[in-house]
Write a protein that binds this DNA or RNA. Structure first.
Length: 363
DNA sequence: AACAGGCTCAACCGCTATATG
DNA sequence: TCATATAGCGGTTGAGCCTGT
């Protein structure tokens, strides 16, 4: 049996609200409240509108203290950070921005903010020319939701562009490479030079391989994952650049375990792969010290760093097991894993989120 | 001035979560 | 425990506006 409609579709008005309708609805709610029943409300006040439509109109437009347009830089930062962290939970994001509605934020993100951020990459990656790579990337892309992909892209971009202390941005912090890796990178760089490479990619390729000791500090787990992923990018991309044939690409992709993180960037054809077994390798102690140094220099406390990890919620959409990626587990994620059941309170309870705005990606 | 294409944003749709009997 | 009603959410649509030619 199908579900009964919430209202008589034939007898309700659709489309834009007239000033008279607005006035009627506003006056009634301000005097009587909603009465806890939106469905019955339009009939009470003689509006030929669906209750859902009345609710939406009130929440998004008529209720007091609603702000429209004119998003500030600070609001942009919050939206961006939260989107990267939790995805398109617009109501939760809206709860952090007084006077903003979820609809407003959603529209703002889809029409402006996303373009503002991703547009940079599109521009820088536009000149990279391998259609083979692009096609293969598109295929790999299918395994990942656009939301997660977008968030991953944004994370990587922002990590790179916004943080002056970023590992990617600081060549002095890059340990020496294995000669073979250097050779791969040189090859890649020479090809990229010819093709006006995306600067982001170049920096990713400069990230060295490294190891890890134990599941100790999440600080290092975090950086470790990033650099491990970057190493895998190096390997795959270098192979493909050296011999960019489709069959090679297919083999490379087919050879990847299903437990790998696998995604791709449809804009610049980046293939991102992180192998869990790499995560089992040993950490170079001097490198670890350097990472600790970075964290100290940017003022991360261990708690803040834990919170920072919250930002990588997007990886859960990539079928990454908690065992294979040790940095993954945290209280926040458990809440988010229960999907829509958590609210803005739970976000705030995952303390430190707002600290991340200051520590993180100022636009 | 006229047109086409792109952009914005209010509103709708359909789904899930929650409340209630 | 189940069925039903309602609230709430996120994705999508389309009318109107803007901009470039």
């Amino acid at each position: 049996m199908g579900r009964a409609p919430c209202c008589d579709k034939a007898n309700v008005k659709k489309g834009p609200w007239s000033p008279e309708e607005d006035a009627t609805l506003k006056a009634y709610i301000e005097e009587h409240g909603t009465g806890g029943n939106w469905i019955a409300l339009p009939q009470k006040i003689g509006l030929k509108r669906c209750g859902k439509s009345c609710r939406l109109r009130w929440l998004n437009y008529l209720r007091p203290n609603i702000k429209h347009g004119g998003f500030s830089e600070e609001e942009d930062n919050i939206i961006c950070n939260l989107y990267i962290s939790i995805g398109s939970r617009w109501s939760i994001i809206a709860a952090q921005l007084p006077g903003r509605t979820d609809n407003d934020i959603k529209n703002y993100w889809n029409t402006r903010l996303k373009k503002k951020l991703l547009g940079r990459r599109k521009q820088s990656g536009a000149n990279r020319g391998s259609q083979d790579l692009k096609d293969a990337s598109d295929d790999a892309h299918q395994a990942l939701s656009s939301s997660a992909l977008e968030r991953l892209q944004l994370h990587m971009q922002l990590q790179n562009l916004q943080n002056p202390f970023s590992f990617y941005n600081n060549p002095a912090l890059w340990p020496k490479l294995h000669p073979f890796q250097e050779k791969m990178i040189q090859t890649v760089q020479s090809m990229n030079d010819q093709n006006s490479a995306n600067p982001l990619m170049m920096q990713q390729f400069s990230v060295p391989s490294h190891d890890q000791t134990v599941q100790g500090h999440k600080v290092n787990d975090h950086f470790y994952e990033q650099t491990t992923g970057a190493l895998a990018i190096q390997e795959q991309y270098a192979k493909l650049c050296i011999n960019p044939k489709m069959d090679e690409l297919e083999n490379a992709l087919n050879g990847m375990s299903s437990s790998f993180i696998s995604t791709s960037n449809p804009v610049d054809s980046t293939i991102v792969v992180a192998k869990p077994d790499m995560i089992e390798q040993q950490v170079n102690s001097s490198f670890q010290a350097q990472l600790d140094g970075i964290n100290n220099s940017v003022g991360f406390t261990s708690q803040q760093q834990d919170d920072q990890i919250v930002e990588f919620d997007c990886f859960k959409e990539m079928n990454v097991s908690k065992d294979s990626l040790m940095w993954w587990a945290n209280d926040f994620d458990n809440k988010s894993a229960s999907s829509n059941s958590w609210d803005s309170t739970s976000v705030l309870q995952s303390q430190g989120m707002f600290q991340d705005y200051e520590l993180g990606y100022n636009l």
